[in-house]
Design a binder for these strands. Structure first.
Length: 482
RNA sequence: GGCCCGGUGGUCAAACGGUUAAGACACCGCCCUUUCACGGCGGUAAUACGAGUUCGAUUCUCGUCCGGGUCACCA
């Protein structure tokens, strides 16, 4: 068996959605697992909107994700060009070969003729029409005459009228369809350009693609693809159809629905590695119990038998969890690098210890953009609601807070070295000397310093992060407010 | 509507004729603890329905229901 070659063939829309990225990932993994090649082909034949910079979005996303292509528009390769709009010369010629061998034919029917002969019917909310094969049996002379007269034409694929076409899919197994269900689809449009389906088959063959990985919306048109391969006498590729990624039971995840794209997730503070890991798991399951994998590890672990046939609903909660696992696994330096921009959104002052903040934040961060609100009390000094001093567990309230804060103030005034360790031992020594529970001192302290019920880290870390001046000043005003 | 595909807890999913039907997320409880997290322990929760094949069906077959896809000179 030859080298595995897969391709990712996106249209440049300026946007990489999750389902697309997953298809790219699977195509990449299938190739790399067997030491094959992953090819990038840009399908830019969209008549109409070309989005500025859209191709760069594709390049950048793939590179970010570590899905490096072996051949593509930017790096070339032996099967170029890799931009569909630059391959336009081929197709008509290939279509004519099919006409010659009887697998396709010229059709001169105009839109108007079709409308009057076979009006569209509504079926399930869609307007449907099946071509009736009107031009199938035109004599050679008739065809020649019409061509010579310059009458516009399309070229249609001639589907067998009987029998069954079966193709094999690596995910779905054998899929069969009766040939009479197949329409004589257009291969070459009246403007001489190929249809998507035709261009795909020709390109995939010319590029030596061995495994076609794509969404399962193509499952029902695959028999037509296979018939085309047969008509050319080419060996069809292996097919790997993937069920879609859904937003809910009914809708696919899509830009149209306002769903997050890869870029949106990254902007929100998700780690690329975590996103890839999660989407790999969406619709595919590993052999064992493990579920945290880098792309490199997936390259070995991936197995097509684990690809699921049914749609998978995108679960933001699970993504969050996996992201949190990746965040916790970050080195303190890497965490700080990622977190600082978000910390800075909330903390403008410079006189706090950012390393301490990072340390308390790291185990509490699910995605980076949830950092700023956790830190809202660092710059602002809100009024303290005396209710916050109430704790049944530690038997504290506004009354007990005063002596606790005063004692803490005295102890901290005497301390010069405001590290986590020294603050910790100072305060615990105080706790011991007073014969109270830790929370009796530390609870009210946290409230006095932050003005909020819940903080990342405890009183000790907050004090060390804020430093002596700020801490003492906050405790004093909290006492004054009692 | 025709055709194609699918249907295991709320979600992702394992089990590919024999299991007390895994695991993860979420949720709930307990422990740890200066709050919240992290971590540890435990819990609630599923084979859509009905026939058939079989000694035995989540697993095979058929039907029903439900969901998705597709039926363009769009890609």
């Amino acid at each position: 068996m030859g080298k595995v070659r897969t391709r990712f063939a996106p249209s440049p829309t300026g946007y990489m959605h999750i389902g697309n990225l997953r298809t790219a990932l699977y195509a990449y993994l299938i190739a790399k697992k067997d030491g094959g090649d992953f090819i990038l082909r840009i399908e830019d034949t969209d008549q109409g909107r070309l989005v500025e910079g859209a191709v760069d979005v594709i390049y950048n996303t793939l590179k970010d994700c570590g899905l490096y292509w072996d051949e593509g528009p930017d790096i070339g390769g032996d099967y170029g060009p890799y931009v569909q709009s630059e391959r336009m010369d081929n197709y008509l010629e290939y279509a004519k070969k099919l006409v010659e061998n009887g697998s396709a034919y010229y059709c001169f029917c105009t839109e108007e003729e079709l409308d009057s002969r076979i009006p569209k019917k509504e079926e399930g909310g869609e307007m449907i029409r099946r071509y009736d094969g009107h031009c199938r049996n035109l004599s050679k002379e008739e065809v020649e005459a019409k061509l010579a007269a310059g009458i516009p034409y399309v070229i249609r694929q001639k589907m067998p009228s009987e029998g069954v076409t079966t193709f094999h899919d690596l995910v779905y197994g054998d899929v069969s369809v009766e040939n009479k269900e197949l329409e004589d689809q257009v291969l070459i449009k009246s403007d001489g350009m190929p249809t998507y389906n035709f261009a795909n088959v020709v390109d995939d063959h010319l590029m030596g693609i061995t495994h076609v990985v794509r969404g399962n919306e193509y499952l029902s048109s695959s028999p037509k693809y296979n018939l085309l391969y047969e008509a050319f006498g080419w060996t069809p590729p292996e097919y790997v159809h993937c069920a879609p990624v859904m937003k809910d039971e009914h809708q696919k995840l899509s830009k149209r629905n306002g769903d997050a794209s890869y870029q949106d997730l990254v902007a929100k503070g998700y780690l690329t590695e975590a996103v890839l890991n999660y989407i790999a798991l969406l619709g595919w399951s590993p052999k064992g119990e493990r579920e945290i994998y880098t792309v490199e590890e997936l390259t070995h672990e991936f197995d097509m038998s684990g690809i699921s046939k049914s749609p998978a609903i995108f679960d933001p909660e699970k993504l969050k969890h996996i992201n949190a696992e990746y965040i916790r696994a970050l080195s303190p330096e890497d965490f700080k690098k990622h977190a600082m921009p978000f910390i800075r959104q909330a903390v403008k002052r410079d006189d706090v210890d950012f390393d301490i903040l990072c340390e308390v934040l790291q185990p509490r961060t699910e995605y980076f953009s949830d950092i700023p609100e956790k830190l809202s009390f660092i710059d602002a000094r809100p009024d303290i609601d005396p209710e916050l001093y109430n704790s049944k567990k530690f038997k504290t309230n506004a009354e007990t807070a005063r002596p606790a804060l005063e004692a803490s103030l005295t102890a901290l005034e005497a301390l010069d070295d405001f590290t986590v360790e020294s603050v910790h031992s100072t305060l615990l020594a105080l706790v011991e000397s007073l014969g109270v529970k830790n929370g009796w001192i530390l609870g009210p302290l946290r409230v006095a310093i932050s003005g909020v019920q819940v903080t990342p880290g405890g009183a000790v870390e907050l004090i060390a992060a804020l430093g002596k001046n700020e801490t003492l000043s906050r405790i004093r005003s909290a006492i004054a407010a009692l």
